[in-house]
Design a protein around this nucleic acid. Structure first.
Lengths: 120, 120
DNA sequence: CTCTTTAGATTGTATTTTGCAAGTCACCAC
DNA sequence: GTGGTGACTTGCAAAATACAATCTAAAGAG
């Protein structure tokens, strides 16, 4: 209850700040990552990713990303069961951000996280 | 007390997940942004940014970014007073991520946040 | 040298967000 | 109709964040 269509509280007019108002947490970009890599993903497929997102956080993020039209159902008129999500054009436009982030981490975090791999 | 050198809990071997283990919150990348734009920045200059970070969060993030060698003092041997921070090479290597994020937000968030500007 | 000011924090408490376990609900197969 | 499974929702504990107040060390004024 409560968080039906949650209004985002934009901290400033800066586009970087605004991007973080939407994407600035530990989970949202992982959902985008899964969709960039796999094309489509159901609720339980998201849950199966190795980082172990919890069900309430996943549901909340999927709702927010849908409100912002970054993701949508593959079959908009059907029921939720086995109805995967996919990226919209706006969501897919995050590809360069995510790839840059991966490249950066592989080079600059390897001293702190020795098990880091090339791409999930 | 407590949070002296905080060990990061890496959720997986994925570089994107690992990048988010470090950068995945609403404030860390704003600190990087300020340094990318201005070159150097003191504690009180960070506080003066329009998003209004609070002092304890700023201190915690500066400590973490210093531990990870993404930022450093401009004058390493002097006292903290008027001793600004700057990006290391690893920190400066985040420039493409931040620029991509800004470009994405300007195009894809303008329907939701009409006051968004071109660059802070 | 001492007094005042101030940048750079730290601490305490209220509020918000997250994590975890359990429970609900709808659909489909049989 | 009933059993199983996927997609959530709810309740509560734990952690992170926001906000205000306070502390501290060093610079600068006299």
């Amino acid at each position: 209850m409560g968080t039906d269509i949650e209004q985002i509280d934009w901290r400033s007019a800066c586009p970087i700040s605004s991007a973080l108002d939407v994407l600035g947490d530990k989970w949202t970009i992982l959902i985008i990552r899964d969709l960039l890599i796999r094309g489509t993903r159901t609720y339980s497929e998201f849950l199966a990713s190795p980082e172990q997102i919890s069900t309430n956080i996943l549901a909340a993020r999927l709702k927010m990303l849908t409100c912002l039209k970054l993701i949508e159902r593959t079959n908009p008129d059907a029921s939720a069961r086995n109805n995967a999500f996919k990226l919209t054009k706006s969501g897919a436009a995050l590809r360069p951000v995510v790839l840059d982030l991966a490249k950066w981490a592989q080079v600059h975090l390897k001293d702190f996280h020795t098990n880091i791999v090339s791409i999930p």
